[in-house]
Design a protein around this nucleic acid. Sequence first.
DNA 1: ATGGTTGCTTAGCAA
Length: 256
Amino acid sequence: MKLATWNVNSIRARLDRLVAFLGRHQPDVVCLQELKVPDDEFPILEVEAAGYQAVFHGQRTYNGVAILTRTPVTDVELGLPGNDQDDQARLIAATIGGIRVLSAYFPNGQSVGSDKWLYKLGWMERLRAHLEARYTPDQPIALCGDFNVAPEDRDAARPDEWRESVLCHADARERLARIAAWGMVDGMRVHEAGPGPYSWWDYRMLAFPKGNGLRIDHVYLTAPLAARCRKAWVDREERKGKLPSDHAPVLVELAP
DNA sequence: ATGGTTGCTTAGCAA
């Protein structure tokens, strides 16, 4: 099974690239983030024409997550429990081929110490609590998405430059480590020691040509799936050319 | 040097 996750930064702006990506890789499951469309504007016809079913949880302008599959999905769940005031569309879960797949768009946090930063840390704690309440780590679970955290210094091309940022700050790394400690491993690190590969490069300051990347998009796997992980990689080609997303897709190949 | 780019929505915010 080939599993992919990609922050498309607007599914409308990236629709041609998404369809080409599906054709090029023929993934079985694709988790998407930052759709930036309400549900009634999700391009369902184009996705189905490409051979995929979709479940999605969107909102206007911001956020929005989806799971695309070539086989039927069941038990779709929208949103992250634990805060009735939270209307941000950042999590969707579905079962595909016996695997529980979660597509997650973690908050960015904007700047350390801001309200959005506190929301980020709280959201990550809520996700950990949700995993603990809803699942057990002996189940086959793949938590995929834009985590907006580079877990370690080897996940940044220039770690010193980024260490105090919202993407690398020790408090965000610690919250992510707690999520992993529930019972998941970083799929990329099953076979790749790094440094890199990176999955995001800022649009500004020529970050991509300068190689100033971070690895903030992840596929975290519980033990039954980690044992099946054959390889993981980033499709850097997707960051090149005209009007790319600022994120490149991460792909994982799981043995049957 | 407090910059730079993209997307959504239309001037300002979020990333």
